[in-house]
């Protein structure tokens, strides 16, 4: 193979192409490409700047927000956002890792790729469809489950009830979110597991390990940091997911850990979607301020995820 020399553009020792004739096309093309890259940086900066600017009126201490101060308004929303996302993550991560292992190491080699496509199809379903499905199907499925949970596990504060008769609770919303982030985590986990060095796996098998022992001692240690960052990327997606939650949840803006009652905290994104189309004046600014909070949180989560990936040697 060739050595990893890049384009011989300013090659030492002279004789490179660029040192010969200067071509106008080259400069122009290079400029355009660089400009496009810089534009992306500018867009990201602009997102932050414009959001901050439009949020400013709501951030001033004398701004009137329904429910008192801005923190009293955004606080429950923030709580709901994190709660729903955490439910989604707790449900989706083990299942995703299982599916990732199934496709990479357990399924028949010939069928594995097709099964992978099936999971990818989950990512192709638009969020609005998940939302309506969540109301019509999943909520109905969950109603008897919630009744059972209250009857049998009611002593745990999470399931204290009284169980919602419509099934449209934060737990249902979290489950819908789990379905939505499942394909994301699965795809990343699968790729990482597939990258395990062949020699590690075969060495384990040659020593007489069963398939599970091989996975436990070679695949999982190799893929651990990748799975963590995949889960965090899923968390970022779950935090920002809007329509599914907006549709599924029946909202009452409270802070409660009771997952299955009919009073549920809303999430920032869902609150924006529900109220923005009709909002005017200071309400718009308040909603944009809450959006800014969401932006900052997801940015930090994604930042941390990418940082973990970068630190562990860019496997994902």
């Amino acid at each position: 193979m060739s050595t990893p020399t890049r384009a011989p553009e300013r090659g030492p020792g002279g004789g490179g192409i660029a040192t010969g004739t200067k071509r106008r096309g080259d400069g122009l093309f290079r400029g355009t490409a660089t400009g496009a890259g810089v534009l992306i940086l500018l867009v990201l900066a602009a997102v932050a700047v414009f959001l901050v600017y439009e949020a400013l009126p709501a951030l001033s201490p004398d701004a009137e927000v329904d429910g008192g101060s801005l923190t009293a308004y955004v606080g429950p929303l923030l709580f709901g956002t994190v709660l729903a996302a955490v439910i989604a993550l707790v449900v989706a991560t083990p299942v995703s890792v299982g599916i990732g292992l199934f496709i990479s190491h357990f399924a028949p080699r010939r069928a594995a790729q097709g099964l992978g496509y099936l999971v990818d199809l989950l990512a192709a379903v638009p969020s609005i469809v998940y939302g309506i499905w969540g109301i019509v199907v999943l909520s109905q499925w969950m109603v008897p489950v919630y009744a059972w949970l209250t009857d049998n596990l009611g002593f745990i504060p999470l399931f204290a009830g009284p169980a919602s008769a419509s099934g449209r609770t934060i737990l249902t919303a979290g489950l819908v979110l789990a379905v939505m982030i499942l394909p994301i985590i699965t795809a990343l986990a699968r790729d990482i597991f597939l990258q395990t060095p062949r020699l590690h796996e075969e060495a384990a098998l040659a020593l007489g390990a069963t398939r599970w022992e091989m996975i436990k001692y070679s695949v999982i240690p190799y893929g651990r940091s990748g799975v963590v960052s995949a889960a965090m990327l899923g968390l970022g997606r779950a935090l920002g997911e809007t329509m599914a939650v907006a549709l599924v949840l029946s909202v009452s803006n409270v802070v409660t850990f009771n997952l299955i009652s009919s009073t549920n905290p809303s999430t920032i994104a869902a609150n924006i979607a529900l109220n923005f189309p009709e909002a005017t004046g200071i309400d718009t600014n308040v909603l944009i301020a809450s959006g800014l909070a969401l932006f900052v949180i997801t940015f930090l989560v994604n930042f941390a995820a990418r940082w973990i990936v970068a630190r562990s040697g860019a496997k994902a």
Partner: peptide, 19 residues
């Protein structure tokens, strides 16, 4: 930043354009 941008919530993108 492109990697980070992949995770921008879609509703924030909408808010940005509105702002």
């Amino acid at each position: 930043l492109v990697d980070v941008m992949t995770g921008i919530p879609s509703i924030v993108a909408g808010l940005f354009v509105v702002a």
